[in-house]
Design a protein around this nucleic acid. Structure first.
Lengths: 220, 220
DNA sequence: AACAGGGTTATTGTATACAAATTGCCGACG
DNA sequence: CGTCGGCAATTTGTATACAATAACCCTGTT
């Protein structure tokens, strides 16, 4: 992470996540250079990565814009993620070691701890959640699957500012994870797949409800 | 395609496909510059694309090598492709226009014409086959799905030199495509998914048989 | 003979200058 | 008043020089 292009990537990504760069807005490479404090060469490399992760998009004439996800885009992304991550859960069920299952339990204890407070710590929840899912993908032993998912998982976080997490939603996620762990402990691929499917599909509807009935179809 | 980076991409890719650059071999950026006749900047951009498509890989210390796919890698890739392309076929069944279906018929006529000769024209077959599948993915109207598949479809072609296409294999592909067209014409997503699944799974076994029992597990 | 150390070469990473392309503006003309 | 064309400014694309880092070889020591 000490390379200039990595720092540029992190810096630009942070700006996108914080909302300092708004969806649909044009950005120039020079702008991003100033922002990251490096020259255009590493910035261009970082931009390629972000384009690949669909956080930035190029117009037909190569001009650069912050991605603006429509409701359809989000639904599509969730559908793809569900397909791939169900597959990962299925594979993981027969491949997880006892140590890895213990890791999942640890991550989910952290997750529930973040929720079981007077005021839930959403950032802590998100980090534990990310770790939980990452461990499953890791255990699926399918490096290309992992690469594909990497492109899908992070993108919608862009919209997290718009989202209102209810404590009940967060708790339900914890329970889903518990059942997932049970399916893994039973070495039951079908069970794991099914739980993952309902987990992600519920997440989609929670997300859709939070963002609004039109799911971002009205742009600002 | 007139951009230097695009030309570099095409040139390097051609070298990989022709087998002039062998699997596992190290390549340097300067080498690729000479090869493409452009400077390192566009070459580096082309290399990023090829890394993304898994045709090139980087060692832990950033040195560049031609990808060397193991049998497990190939099986994994086929499994992912099947999952995604079945999904594409299912979506396409309800979205293809009459014109697009006609396009598929044209592509498959070209494909069978390439086969129905004293000596089948494999290159022409591959091109028609690529066009056929591309049209389906296009019709699925899922740009991210298309992006994911792009990373998977082209990679194993690297190994096509090792492959012996029997005329019967090629003819069977044409018949699969015909049934796929029938499923699309009937607007039956389930049918389309099933046909695509068996089509790709058969292709996998044909491929595995042609490459050999160990599927490349013995590297040269 | 094996191995550690240091210096040399090869390779990748970054900055900068310049070229090509695109956009937007402004005036001339219908 | 609209619109067409071209000039100026902005933005992206490429080449090249230089810096940082990793691999290699060679020697000296044990």
């Amino acid at each position: 992470m000490s390379r200039a292009s990595d720092r540029a990537y992190a810096a630009i990504r942070a700006e996108l996540m914080s909302g300092a760069l708004k969806a649909g807005e044009q950005v120039t490479e020079d702008q991003l250079c100033q922002l990251a404090g490096v020259s255009r060469t590493p910035v261009r490399e970082a931009v390629r990565r972000l384009e690949n992760e669909l956080l930035l998009v190029r117009s037909d004439t190569k001009r650069l814009f912050v991605a603006d996800w429509s409701g359809d885009d989000i639904e599509e992304m969730f559908a793809l993620r569900q397909m791939l991550e169900c597959h990962a859960a299925e594979r993981a069920a027969t491949r997880l070691t006892a140590e890895q299952i213990a890791l999942l339990e640890t991550a989910n204890r952290e997750l529930t701890a973040a929720v079981d407070q007077p005021v839930p710590d959403v950032a802590r929840f998100l980090e534990a959640n990310r770790s939980f899912h990452e461990n499953i993908i890791e255990a699926a032993h399918s490096p290309r699957l992992a690469g594909l998912l990497a492109r899908l998982v992070e993108a919608p976080v862009l919209l997290r500012t718009a989202r209102t997490y209810s404590p009940e939603d967060l708790r339900q996620s914890g329970r889903d994870h518990d059942e997932l762990i049970a399916a893994f402990a039973a070495r039951d691929p079908e069970w794991a797949r099914a739980v993952m499917g309902s987990h992600l599909r519920r997440a989609f509807h929670t997300f859709a409800r939070a963002v609004g009935p039109d799911m971002g179809r009205t742009r600002s």
